[in-house]
Amino acid sequence: MGVLEMKNIRKSFDSLQVLKGIDLEVKKGEVVAVIGPSGGGKSTLLRCATTLEKIDSGSIIIAGETLVSTSNSGLTHYTDKKKLQEIRSKFGLVFQNFNLFPHFSVRRNITEALIHVYKKSREEADAICDSLLAKFDLSSKADSFPCNLSGGQQQRVSIARAMAVNPEILFFDEPTSALDPELTSGVLKVIRELAEEKMTMVIVTHEMAFARDVADKIVFMDGGVIVEQGPDVISNPCNERTREFLSKF
């Protein structure tokens, strides 16, 4: 069974249909890269999977827990508040523009949820924080504030913050789109390391070479549907639309 199972996801904003029946399964330890043109529904799909947007119909199961389901009669039902919180503890999300808390130090960005949501002691939280900072090459930045870090460092902190709660699956929404090429490599290196540790990840990205290298499965989305998916979509696309998109890189 997959860590993430999305079935027949439909989502509209007013009259604009953004997702037109998406099926996506992510197995444990799998790295899935979602590519495609802007406006194709990639980010919306990610936002639906992470509860930031509500779907109109379909079903989402995360780590065996049903987040939302649609009955045969067409009623879409989200789980209750308590279960929702439980499901949110199973995944992490890394944003395009980091969304770190600017008034907190790096350490507090990482430990605040551990202490106040996960009810860990300060010592435990600090230990988790220190090991993540060491891993992501940020040990000297524990007491810095986000505004004093480079974009690449900020994004690595936000990956550490997402990893701190020990999620079963990590989502990335264009993690390097706000960074210049020089800073991009540091962030990609961290994601690569996580992939080697068999962290289950879904990455929306425009970095084709990176997607090809790191992903076990590549999903090409356009016009609200998955046009093509598989391990070789980038190196060996079957679909005409996919080929056209990839030729621009």
Partner: peptide, 19 residues
Amino acid sequence: GQYEAAQILGFNKAQTFFR
């Protein structure tokens, strides 16, 4: 994005507002 990051990390509404 501040609200979204807080929500994903599991903060409830009161914690999000006051912290």
